[in-house]
Protein backbone atom coordinates (compact mmCIF):
# COMPACT_ATOMS: atom_id res chain seq x y z
CA UNK A 1 0.00 0.00 0.00
CA UNK A 2 1.27 3.48 -0.88
CA UNK A 3 1.27 6.22 1.72
CA UNK A 4 2.23 9.86 1.36
CA UNK A 5 5.05 10.67 3.77
CA UNK A 6 5.90 13.96 5.45
CA UNK A 7 9.08 13.62 7.51
CA UNK A 8 9.44 17.20 8.74
CA UNK A 9 12.64 19.11 9.44
CA UNK A 10 13.76 17.29 12.59
CA UNK A 11 13.61 13.87 10.95
CA UNK A 12 16.24 15.10 8.51
CA UNK A 13 18.58 16.22 11.28
CA UNK A 14 18.52 15.59 15.02
CA UNK A 15 15.88 12.85 14.73
CA UNK A 16 17.34 11.20 11.62
CA UNK A 17 17.19 7.89 13.45
CA UNK A 18 13.39 8.07 13.53
CA UNK A 19 13.24 8.66 9.78
CA UNK A 20 15.53 5.70 9.18
CA UNK A 21 13.61 3.36 11.49
CA UNK A 22 10.19 4.40 10.20
CA UNK A 23 11.18 3.71 6.60
CA UNK A 24 12.72 0.35 7.54
CA UNK A 25 9.78 -0.85 9.61
CA UNK A 26 7.12 0.37 7.19
CA UNK A 27 9.00 -1.30 4.36
CA UNK A 28 8.80 -4.66 6.09
CA UNK A 29 5.09 -4.14 6.73
CA UNK A 30 4.69 -3.68 2.98
CA UNK A 31 3.77 0.01 3.23
CA UNK A 32 5.56 2.10 0.64
CA UNK A 33 6.30 5.60 1.86
CA UNK A 34 6.32 8.24 -0.85
CA UNK A 35 7.97 11.38 0.48
CA UNK A 36 6.13 14.58 -0.47
CA UNK A 37 7.84 16.47 -3.25
CA UNK A 38 9.46 19.70 -2.09
CA UNK A 39 7.74 19.65 1.29
CA UNK A 40 8.37 22.64 3.54
CA UNK A 41 8.51 23.34 7.25
CA UNK A 42 5.13 23.19 9.03
CA UNK A 43 6.04 26.02 11.41
CA UNK A 44 5.73 23.80 14.51
CA UNK A 45 4.68 25.66 17.65
CA UNK A 46 6.69 28.74 16.72
CA UNK A 47 4.61 29.95 13.78
CA UNK A 48 1.49 30.39 15.91
CA UNK A 49 3.38 32.63 18.30
CA UNK A 50 4.33 35.06 15.56
CA UNK A 51 1.70 34.96 12.84
CA UNK A 52 -1.67 33.17 12.93
CA UNK A 53 -2.19 33.19 9.17
CA UNK A 54 1.12 31.51 8.45
CA UNK A 55 0.48 28.97 11.20
CA UNK A 56 -2.32 27.63 8.97
CA UNK A 57 -0.74 28.44 5.60
CA UNK A 58 2.53 26.56 6.18
CA UNK A 59 0.93 23.16 6.86
CA UNK A 60 -1.71 23.92 4.20
CA UNK A 61 1.01 23.98 1.54
CA UNK A 62 2.08 20.46 2.50
CA UNK A 63 -1.53 19.27 2.53
CA UNK A 64 -1.88 20.60 -1.02
CA UNK A 65 1.21 18.69 -2.13
CA UNK A 66 -0.06 15.51 -0.45
CA UNK A 67 -3.50 15.69 -2.01
CA UNK A 68 -2.11 16.38 -5.44
CA UNK A 69 0.08 13.29 -5.21
CA UNK A 70 -3.05 11.19 -5.63
CA UNK A 71 -2.54 9.22 -2.44
CA UNK A 72 -5.30 8.94 0.13
CA UNK A 73 -3.34 8.89 3.39
CA UNK A 74 -0.57 11.13 4.73
CA UNK A 75 1.73 9.69 7.39
CA UNK A 76 3.53 12.09 9.71
CA UNK A 77 5.91 10.63 12.34
CA UNK A 78 6.81 13.92 14.07
CA UNK A 79 4.21 14.80 16.69
CA UNK A 80 4.51 18.55 16.28
CA UNK A 81 4.12 18.37 12.50
CA UNK A 82 1.20 15.95 12.96
CA UNK A 83 -0.50 18.29 15.42
CA UNK A 84 -0.05 21.39 13.26
CA UNK A 85 -1.20 19.64 10.09
CA UNK A 86 -4.30 18.16 11.77
CA UNK A 87 -5.22 21.55 13.22
CA UNK A 88 -4.62 23.33 9.91
CA UNK A 89 -6.80 20.83 8.04
CA UNK A 90 -9.66 21.34 10.50
CA UNK A 91 -9.31 25.13 10.40
CA UNK A 92 -9.32 25.09 6.60
CA UNK A 93 -12.53 23.04 6.71
CA UNK A 94 -14.15 25.39 9.20
CA UNK A 95 -13.10 28.60 7.47
CA UNK A 96 -13.57 28.20 3.69
CA UNK A 97 -12.75 31.87 3.04
CA UNK A 98 -9.35 31.34 4.66
CA UNK A 99 -8.83 28.24 2.55
CA UNK A 100 -9.60 30.20 -0.62
CA UNK A 101 -7.20 32.96 0.32
CA UNK A 102 -4.40 30.51 0.97
CA UNK A 103 -5.15 28.54 -2.19
CA UNK A 104 -4.73 31.61 -4.37
CA UNK A 105 -0.99 31.57 -3.69
CA UNK A 106 -0.42 27.81 -3.72
CA UNK A 107 0.54 26.01 -6.91
CA UNK A 108 -0.90 22.78 -5.45
CA UNK A 109 -4.29 23.66 -4.03
CA UNK A 110 -5.76 22.24 -0.87
CA UNK A 111 -9.15 20.58 -0.86
CA UNK A 112 -8.83 19.27 2.69
CA UNK A 113 -9.87 15.68 2.24
CA UNK A 114 -6.73 13.63 2.81
CA UNK A 115 -6.55 11.32 5.82
CA UNK A 116 -3.76 12.32 8.21
CA UNK A 117 -2.19 9.66 10.43
CA UNK A 118 0.74 9.66 12.76
CA UNK A 119 3.26 6.86 12.31
CA UNK A 120 1.91 5.32 15.51
CA UNK A 121 -1.67 5.30 14.14
CA UNK A 122 -0.52 3.32 11.13
CA UNK A 123 1.52 0.91 13.24
CA UNK A 124 -1.43 0.26 15.51
CA UNK A 125 -3.60 -0.51 12.52
CA UNK A 126 -1.15 -2.70 10.65
CA UNK A 127 0.58 -4.57 13.44
CA UNK A 128 -2.34 -6.84 14.21
CA UNK A 129 -2.13 -8.58 10.86
CA UNK A 130 1.57 -9.36 11.07
CA UNK A 131 3.05 -12.69 11.85
CA UNK A 132 6.05 -12.74 14.10
CA UNK A 133 8.79 -15.25 14.40
CA UNK A 134 8.92 -16.69 17.92
CA UNK A 135 12.68 -16.29 17.98
CA UNK A 136 12.61 -12.58 17.25
CA UNK A 137 9.92 -12.05 19.87
CA UNK A 138 12.14 -13.75 22.44
CA UNK A 139 14.64 -10.91 22.06
CA UNK A 140 12.02 -8.58 23.46
CA UNK A 141 11.34 -10.63 26.56
CA UNK A 142 12.14 -8.79 29.69
CA UNK A 143 11.59 -5.32 28.29
CA UNK A 144 9.42 -3.29 30.63
CA UNK A 145 8.86 -0.03 28.86
CA UNK A 146 7.01 3.02 30.05
CA UNK A 147 5.22 4.49 27.04
CA UNK A 148 5.59 8.25 26.94
CA UNK A 149 3.33 10.17 24.61
CA UNK A 150 4.03 13.80 25.44
CA UNK A 151 1.64 16.59 24.53
CA UNK A 152 1.22 16.84 20.85
CA UNK A 153 -0.31 13.46 20.07
CA UNK A 154 -3.30 13.82 22.31
CA UNK A 155 -3.91 17.49 23.05
CA UNK A 156 -4.57 20.01 20.32
CA UNK A 157 -5.06 23.78 20.24
CA UNK A 158 -8.19 23.31 18.17
CA UNK A 159 -10.95 20.69 18.30
CA UNK A 160 -9.87 17.82 16.08
CA UNK A 161 -11.14 14.27 16.36
CA UNK A 162 -8.60 11.60 17.17
CA UNK A 163 -9.15 7.99 18.06
CA UNK A 164 -7.04 8.16 21.20
CA UNK A 165 -7.94 8.52 24.86
CA UNK A 166 -6.64 11.94 25.83
CA UNK A 167 -5.80 11.29 29.48
CA UNK A 168 -4.71 7.65 29.19
CA UNK A 169 -3.62 6.92 25.62
CA UNK A 170 -3.12 3.29 24.72
CA UNK A 171 -1.78 3.19 21.15
CA UNK A 172 1.80 2.34 22.01
CA UNK A 173 0.70 -0.16 24.63
CA UNK A 174 -1.50 -1.86 22.02
CA UNK A 175 1.32 -2.04 19.52
CA UNK A 176 3.71 -3.40 22.12
CA UNK A 177 1.20 -5.98 23.29
CA UNK A 178 0.92 -7.24 19.74
CA UNK A 179 4.66 -7.93 19.82
CA UNK A 180 4.52 -9.55 23.23
CA UNK A 181 5.80 -6.68 25.39
CA UNK A 182 3.87 -5.57 28.45
CA UNK A 183 4.27 -1.87 29.17
CA UNK A 184 4.03 -0.56 32.73
CA UNK A 185 1.07 1.54 33.76
CA UNK A 186 2.21 4.93 35.05
CA UNK A 187 1.12 8.48 35.79
CA UNK A 188 2.98 10.79 33.52
CA UNK A 189 2.22 9.43 30.07
CA UNK A 190 1.23 12.80 28.76
CA UNK A 191 3.07 15.26 30.99
CA UNK A 192 4.84 17.91 28.97
CA UNK A 193 8.61 17.43 28.83
CA UNK A 194 9.22 21.10 28.16
CA UNK A 195 9.87 20.61 24.45
CA UNK A 196 11.74 23.52 22.90
CA UNK A 197 11.65 25.47 26.15
CA UNK A 198 14.68 23.42 27.16
CA UNK A 199 16.64 25.94 25.08
CA UNK A 200 15.29 29.13 26.63
CA UNK A 201 13.81 28.05 29.96
CA UNK A 202 16.12 25.20 30.81
CA UNK A 203 15.60 24.79 34.53
CA UNK A 204 11.82 24.42 34.30
CA UNK A 205 12.11 21.91 31.48
CA UNK A 206 14.66 19.85 33.41
CA UNK A 207 12.30 19.71 36.40
CA UNK A 208 9.50 18.40 34.21
CA UNK A 209 11.73 15.76 32.66
CA UNK A 210 12.88 14.64 36.09
CA UNK A 211 9.25 14.18 37.16
CA UNK A 212 8.64 11.94 34.16
CA UNK A 213 11.79 9.94 34.79
CA UNK A 214 11.08 9.62 38.50
CA UNK A 215 7.65 8.12 38.01
CA UNK A 216 8.80 5.76 35.26
CA UNK A 217 11.53 4.46 37.54
CA UNK A 218 9.19 4.18 40.51
CA UNK A 219 6.92 1.93 38.43
CA UNK A 220 9.78 -0.38 37.57
CA UNK A 221 10.26 0.60 33.94
CA UNK A 222 13.58 -0.28 32.36
CA UNK A 223 13.24 1.93 29.30
CA UNK A 224 11.08 4.68 27.86
CA UNK A 225 9.33 4.27 24.52
CA UNK A 226 8.29 7.42 22.70
CA UNK A 227 6.89 8.42 19.35
CA UNK A 228 7.79 12.11 19.41
CA UNK A 229 11.27 13.14 18.24
CA UNK A 230 11.34 16.17 20.54
CA UNK A 231 10.51 14.07 23.60
CA UNK A 232 13.11 11.51 22.60
CA UNK A 233 15.76 14.18 22.26
CA UNK A 234 14.88 15.85 25.53
CA UNK A 235 14.55 12.70 27.62
CA UNK A 236 17.72 11.18 26.23
CA UNK A 237 20.12 14.04 25.57
CA UNK A 238 19.36 15.91 28.79
CA UNK A 239 19.23 12.80 30.95
CA UNK A 240 22.49 13.42 32.78
CA UNK A 241 21.48 16.99 33.54
CA UNK A 242 18.06 16.40 34.99
CA UNK A 243 19.02 13.21 36.80
CA UNK A 244 21.97 14.88 38.50
CA UNK A 245 19.84 17.87 39.39
CA UNK A 246 17.28 15.69 41.14
CA UNK A 247 19.58 13.00 42.55
CA UNK A 248 18.34 10.25 40.29
CA UNK A 249 21.02 7.59 40.05
CA UNK A 250 19.57 5.40 37.31
CA UNK A 251 19.59 6.10 33.61
CA UNK A 252 17.06 4.72 31.13
CA UNK A 253 17.41 4.26 27.38
CA UNK A 254 14.78 6.09 25.34
CA UNK A 255 13.62 4.16 22.29
CA UNK A 256 11.40 5.14 19.45
CA UNK A 257 8.41 2.82 19.09
CA UNK A 258 9.79 1.82 15.69
CA UNK A 259 12.87 0.34 17.33
CA UNK A 260 10.99 -2.24 19.38
CA UNK A 261 8.65 -3.01 16.50
CA UNK A 262 11.66 -3.35 14.22
CA UNK A 263 13.27 -5.84 16.58
CA UNK A 264 10.06 -7.88 16.60
CA UNK A 265 10.06 -7.89 12.81
CA UNK A 266 13.51 -9.42 12.78
CA UNK A 267 15.76 -6.40 12.32
CA UNK A 268 19.05 -6.38 14.17
CA UNK A 269 20.26 -3.66 16.53
CA UNK A 270 22.85 -2.65 13.96
CA UNK A 271 20.23 -2.18 11.26
CA UNK A 272 17.99 -0.19 13.59
CA UNK A 273 20.77 1.97 15.03
CA UNK A 274 23.32 2.08 12.27
CA UNK A 275 26.88 3.28 12.67
CA UNK A 276 27.75 6.84 13.43
CA UNK A 277 28.77 7.88 9.95
CA UNK A 278 25.23 7.63 8.65
CA UNK A 279 24.18 10.43 10.89
CA UNK A 280 27.25 12.61 11.02
CA UNK A 281 27.89 13.04 7.35
CA UNK A 282 24.29 13.63 6.39
CA UNK A 283 23.95 10.64 4.12
CA UNK A 284 20.41 9.64 3.57
CA UNK A 285 18.57 6.39 3.25
CA UNK A 286 18.48 6.29 -0.52
CA UNK A 287 22.26 6.69 -0.65
CA UNK A 288 22.55 3.49 1.31
CA UNK A 289 19.89 1.25 -0.13
CA UNK A 290 18.47 2.85 -3.25
CA UNK A 291 14.70 2.74 -3.64
CA UNK A 292 14.22 -0.75 -2.33
CA UNK A 293 12.23 0.31 0.71
Amino acid sequence: MDLAYYPGCSLYQSAKLYNHQTKLVFGILDLKLKELEDWSCCGATSAGKINDFMAVALPARNLGIAENSGLSELVIPCSACYSRTMVAQKQLQDFPLLKNEINIELSKKVKGNIKISSALDVLRREIGGSRFNAMTLEKLEGYKPACYYGCMNTRFPYDVSISENVENPQSMETVLEAIGVKAVDWNYKTLCCGASSVIYNTECALDLMAKIMGDALARGADCLVVNCPMCQMNMESQQDQYCKKHDIKERLPVYFITELVGMALGLSKEELQPGDDLFITGMNWTDLCGDSV
Binding site: Y12, Q13, W39, N51, D52, F53, L58, D276, T281, G282
Partner: peptide, 26 residues
Amino acid sequence: KRLHLSFHSSKGRDEISRLYKKSSGR
Protein backbone atom coordinates in the same frame (compact mmCIF):
# COMPACT_ATOMS: atom_id res chain seq x y z
CA LYS B 1 25.52 12.38 16.83
CA ARG B 2 22.67 14.82 16.64
CA LEU B 3 24.58 17.70 15.07
CA HIS B 4 24.17 17.61 11.33
CA LEU B 5 26.10 19.60 8.84
CA SER B 6 23.70 18.90 6.01
CA PHE B 7 21.70 21.74 4.52
CA HIS B 8 18.21 21.27 3.18
CA SER B 9 15.78 23.76 1.77
CA SER B 10 12.55 23.89 -0.15
CA LYS B 11 11.82 25.63 -3.45
CA GLY B 12 8.37 26.37 -2.03
CA ARG B 13 9.84 29.30 -0.14
CA ASP B 14 8.66 31.56 -2.98
CA GLU B 15 5.04 30.58 -2.41
CA ILE B 16 5.58 30.87 1.31
CA SER B 17 7.00 34.34 1.02
CA ARG B 18 4.00 35.46 -1.06
CA LEU B 19 1.70 34.06 1.62
CA TYR B 20 3.70 35.88 4.26
CA LYS B 21 3.37 39.20 2.43
CA LYS B 22 -0.35 38.60 2.31
CA SER B 23 -0.40 38.02 6.04
CA SER B 24 1.44 41.09 7.20
CA GLY B 25 -0.76 43.42 9.15
CA ARG B 26 -3.38 40.75 9.67
